[in-house]
Computed example of a mutant assay.
Amino acid sequence: MSSATSRRTSTGPAPIEKTREPWIDTARGIAIVLVVLFHAVMYLGEAGIAGPWTYASTPLDTFRMPLFFFMSGLLAPSALRLGYRDLFRRRILALLYLYVLWSTIQTTYGILMPPISDPADPESWWSVLTIFISPHPNLWFIYALPIYLTIAWLVRRAPVAVQLGGAAAVSAVFGTGALSILGVPWDKTGRYLFFFLLAVHIAPLVRRLAPRARVVHVVALFAVYACVVAILVFTPVRHVPFVLIASGLVAVTAGIALSVVVSRVGWLSVFERLGSRTLPVYLVHTFPMIAVAGVLLQSGQQLPQPVLLALPPALTVASLAIALLANRLLGRFPGIFSFPIPAWTRKAP
């Protein structure tokens, strides 16, 4: 099976973009690794196993999702030139199907497993019935993409300045925490709209300039990003309007430069391979985390500091491996990581 065919079977409907530079999948691979690491730290923290990795929360939070959504927007321009019927069939239908399917699976799994967080707020079937109103906390990204694509399609004829200005205003408001009452999934969905829409409009420029990145650019950009993170951690400016947008732009620029450099190193091609399989990894990776956190919580043992330091990266690697194995074993069957009727996800005659 060719690489292109493998990507189509593992990530749902066939991609619309004609070309896919290696650094794009490398960036997606780096982002998904950071997502998995963040969730490993989060679940272990919910189980009361809070090690030194909790201090990485801000760097992970301000880097991974702006980069992830920007890369999603980078691949969207040709899809947005379709009529909405074809856009829905080719990009949105499979995402909504997988969101409902895996929200149900994850909720069932959470009900069956011992609770690892607040026992007064256990998993319930009601959360499945309300996933379009109160998005699933692990799968909100899958739900946000159809929302972003629909918004981008609806405003496509407006002046670009109006589109980006409106998206920036929305993301800035959510970034202040003023609407946190809506819940974390909606809060993050609003916060990252700007990065998706920005990528849609500057995709040609980014794809033309990104290959010029060198190691010196990576070092300089991450030095700037380290300063940005320090400001966010040690000053109260995090919730000032547009601050998170500015930090996200630095993160995206640094992430793209890093991805270009990494994509040139043969033995780091694992990130490119991961980037072509982000969907199954995203859907599966939390299952082993919930199990491990539950077991450790039930044991009640105090873990030594070296174990606390090594546990999140080890759990990250194990979760990635299990997700990739699940994709290898089950990805060939329609309806698990793709829409069950492939003909429905093709362009309408």
Results as ranks from 00 to 15, higher is better:
320 L>E: 09
257 A>Y: 03
317 V>T: 11
266 G>W: 03
272 E>T: 15
311 L>A: 05
338 S>W: 01
271 F>D: 01
243 V>F: 10
263 S>Q: 02
321 A>V: 14
269 S>T: 10
311 L>Y: 04
239 H>R: 14
318 A>P: 01
327 N>T: 10
249 L>Q: 10
280 P>S: 07
314 A>Q: 01
279 L>E: 05
249 L>I: 14
252 V>S: 10
293 A>K: 01
262 V>K: 12
290 I>Q: 13
323 A>Y: 03
306 P>C: 06
320 L>T: 00
269 S>V: 00
249 L>R: 09
269 S>Q: 14
240 V>E: 06
264 R>L: 02
279 L>A: 06
254 A>W: 01
302 Q>A: 15
260 V>T: 05
274 L>A: 09
304 P>Q: 10
308 L>D: 08
281 V>Y: 02
324 L>C: 14
339 F>Q: 06
303 L>Y: 09
253 T>D: 08
264 R>C: 04
334 P>A: 10
239 H>P: 00
315 L>S: 02
302 Q>I: 15
252 V>Y: 03
253 T>Y: 06
238 R>W: 03
328 R>V: 02
282 Y>K: 01
285 H>N: 15
320 L>S: 07
276 S>T: 15
250 V>S: 12
278 T>W: 05
262 V>D: 03
241 P>A: 11
310 A>L: 15
267 W>H: 11
282 Y>C: 03
269 S>N: 15
334 P>T: 04
252 V>P: 11
279 L>T: 12
315 L>K: 03
291 A>R: 02
320 L>Y: 11
303 L>C: 10
257 A>L: 12
280 P>V: 13
265 V>F: 08
306 P>W: 07
302 Q>P: 01
307 V>A: 14
292 V>Y: 01
340 P>M: 12
316 T>A: 06
295 V>I: 15
277 R>I: 00
278 T>H: 06
285 H>M: 09
243 V>R: 07
246 A>C: 05
267 W>I: 09
261 V>A: 11
317 V>W: 05
318 A>G: 14
335 G>Q: 04
254 A>E: 05
261 V>T: 12
251 A>T: 08
293 A>F: 01
267 W>Q: 02
249 L>W: 09
333 F>D: 03
292 V>P: 00
308 L>K: 09
243 V>C: 11
249 L>A: 11
304 P>C: 01
333 F>K: 10
297 L>P: 00
315 L>T: 02
295 V>H: 09
280 P>A: 07
258 L>C: 10
261 V>N: 10
303 L>E: 11
289 M>Q: 15
326 A>C: 14
290 I>C: 00
335 G>C: 06
281 V>L: 01
335 G>F: 05
307 V>H: 08
275 G>D: 09
283 L>C: 09
244 L>C: 02
309 L>N: 06
244 L>D: 13
332 R>C: 00
294 G>R: 07
242 F>E: 09
283 L>Q: 03
